[in-house]
Simulated scan of single mutants.
Amino acid sequence: MHMNLAIDATRNKSGGAIVHIINILKYFNPEKHSINEIHLWSYEKLLNQIPDYPWLVKHCPNSLKKSIVNQLSWQYFSLPKELKKNNCTLLFSVDAGSVCRFRPYITMSRDMLSFEKKEFNRYSFSFSWLRLYLLKYVQLSSFKNSIATIFLTHYAKNKISQYHKINYDNIVINHGISDEFRINKINKLNLIKEEEIILTYVSNADLYKHNWNIIEAVHRIRKEHSLNVKLQLIGSEEGNAKALLKIDEVINKFDLKKKFIYRTSKVNHPQLVTYLENTDIFVFASTCENMPNTLIEGMSTSLPVVCSNYGPMPEIIQDAAIFFDPENVSSIKNALYEMIVNDDLRLKLAHKSNLLSKQFSWERCSNETFEFISNTMKKIEE
């Protein structure tokens, strides 16, 4: 039995969402999953990054080039008609923020900010707060009306289940890692004796990323232990205005002469790999994630990881990191210092996290995703 699958990727704007759709299609096998055609709706820039597979039909409606109101109107009124016109059996919405009325559909949980009360309240009295508030109820409606949901972590599933009873088919499928990050970094044996020690934190500027606390923690290590520790904040020159201001303030306070802080805007994967190749310790300080893609990329490089103890991070990296509280500068400082001075532990954790990273593959993610979709489609046809 062969069926047509529709995928709505019109809201895939973040890096992780883009990489996800590109790679699950890359490893898709139409014969294995009994799917005749996949009809993909998205914007031109994303569609141009996806090869022209013989089983893939790309759709790029003009409404996606217009305002968000036009985009949502198209998704609500026009997309269901287009799905029926193309004889699609099932819609896979890769973002639970969809307002499409087509039935039946599978949705994917991708956003967590709307469901983390503490994180949500960081944006109080702002447009971002209003957007997250509305998005929360759009997503809850999407979960309610779907016939199945794909979660990226058990943490996300458990958190969302506090707002919505999950009494239908669901599965947890982690994202994968692009092979370019598997660089097998050779770690230094006696790090504390090096002329300089390079820490790297890959993140845009946002209120739940806590870049400013990492900066202060590094300043304290330099001051208290006379170590030439330097911090690369990759991607931190872009993001939330309030977070950017907090980063600027703490840099002006602790590194006005720019001795140990280096910042960039968003970089592409090859550039990021270059930065990671010249890194000694990988830092991850977010307090809100659904699937921490940047963390698993860091794990795959063979670098030692110092990591936030919030959200799904312990689920992903397990016991292969030194954890800290991203909101507590002393906690961050102590974790970083321990990783610098404890050579045996640092090398052991780097090896362990690299081994764990091997389970995060795009081929596995694709196979599990389309197997789940295919089984759901078969149930519809029965």
Results as ranks from 00 to 15, higher is better:
residue 47 L to S: 12
residue 269 H to Y: 13
residue 10 T to V: 13
residue 325 D to Y: 05
residue 205 A to Q: 04
residue 327 E to C: 04
residue 171 I to G: 01
residue 253 K to V: 12
residue 248 D to Y: 11
residue 172 V to N: 03
residue 10 T to W: 02
residue 216 E to F: 04
residue 349 L to R: 10
residue 52 D to R: 10
residue 121 N to I: 08
residue 127 F to C: 09
residue 224 E to V: 06
residue 60 C to R: 05
residue 21 I to K: 04
residue 271 Q to Y: 13
residue 42 S to K: 02
residue 102 F to Y: 15
residue 254 F to T: 07
residue 98 S to V: 11
residue 159 K to C: 09
residue 116 E to D: 12
residue 326 P to S: 08
residue 18 I to W: 01
residue 365 C to R: 02
residue 181 F to G: 03
residue 83 L to K: 02
residue 105 Y to M: 03
residue 341 V to D: 04
residue 73 S to R: 13
residue 278 N to R: 15
residue 195 E to Q: 13
residue 164 H to V: 07
residue 303 L to K: 01
residue 209 K to F: 04
residue 124 S to Y: 13
residue 160 I to S: 06
residue 8 D to I: 03
residue 228 N to K: 11
residue 50 I to S: 08
residue 10 T to P: 06
residue 210 H to F: 13
residue 131 R to M: 10
residue 311 G to R: 04
residue 52 D to H: 09
residue 4 N to A: 05
residue 97 G to M: 08
residue 115 F to G: 03
residue 89 T to W: 11
residue 103 R to K: 14
residue 126 S to W: 14
residue 243 A to E: 07
residue 199 L to M: 09
residue 84 K to I: 01
residue 102 F to T: 06
residue 339 M to N: 02
residue 75 Q to E: 15
residue 40 L to Q: 00
residue 122 R to D: 07
residue 185 K to L: 03
residue 254 F to N: 06
residue 66 K to S: 11
residue 25 L to T: 04
residue 351 H to Y: 14
residue 210 H to Y: 13
residue 156 A to M: 11
residue 286 S to C: 08
residue 12 N to W: 11
residue 40 L to T: 01
residue 169 D to W: 09
residue 236 S to C: 10
residue 240 N to T: 11
residue 169 D to K: 14
residue 38 I to V: 09
residue 247 I to H: 00
residue 3 M to K: 13
residue 248 D to G: 08
residue 190 N to W: 15
residue 322 I to M: 09
residue 228 N to Y: 08
residue 163 Y to C: 08
residue 136 K to R: 13
residue 370 F to T: 01
residue 143 F to W: 03
residue 260 F to V: 02
residue 110 R to G: 09
residue 7 I to Y: 00
residue 164 H to T: 08
residue 346 R to G: 01
residue 17 A to Y: 07
residue 193 K to S: 10
residue 308 S to E: 02
residue 271 Q to P: 05
residue 189 L to D: 15
residue 174 N to I: 07
residue 13 K to V: 13
residue 29 N to L: 10
residue 250 V to R: 05
residue 271 Q to I: 12
residue 15 G to I: 04
residue 81 K to N: 12
residue 138 V to K: 10
residue 125 F to W: 15
residue 380 I to L: 15
residue 138 V to D: 05
residue 208 Y to G: 00
residue 267 V to N: 07
residue 55 W to C: 06
residue 376 T to V: 14
residue 224 E to D: 12
residue 224 E to G: 00
residue 242 K to P: 00
residue 328 N to P: 08
residue 294 T to R: 02
residue 83 L to A: 00
residue 265 S to N: 15
residue 97 G to S: 10
residue 40 L to F: 04
residue 261 I to A: 03
residue 138 V to T: 11
residue 146 S to Q: 06
residue 40 L to W: 01
residue 280 D to G: 05
residue 21 I to T: 04
residue 50 I to W: 08
residue 114 S to V: 07
residue 243 A to T: 07
residue 44 E to F: 06
residue 349 L to Q: 08
residue 199 L to D: 01
residue 168 Y to K: 15
residue 52 D to F: 10
residue 251 I to R: 02
residue 279 T to H: 09
residue 300 S to R: 06
residue 291 M to F: 15
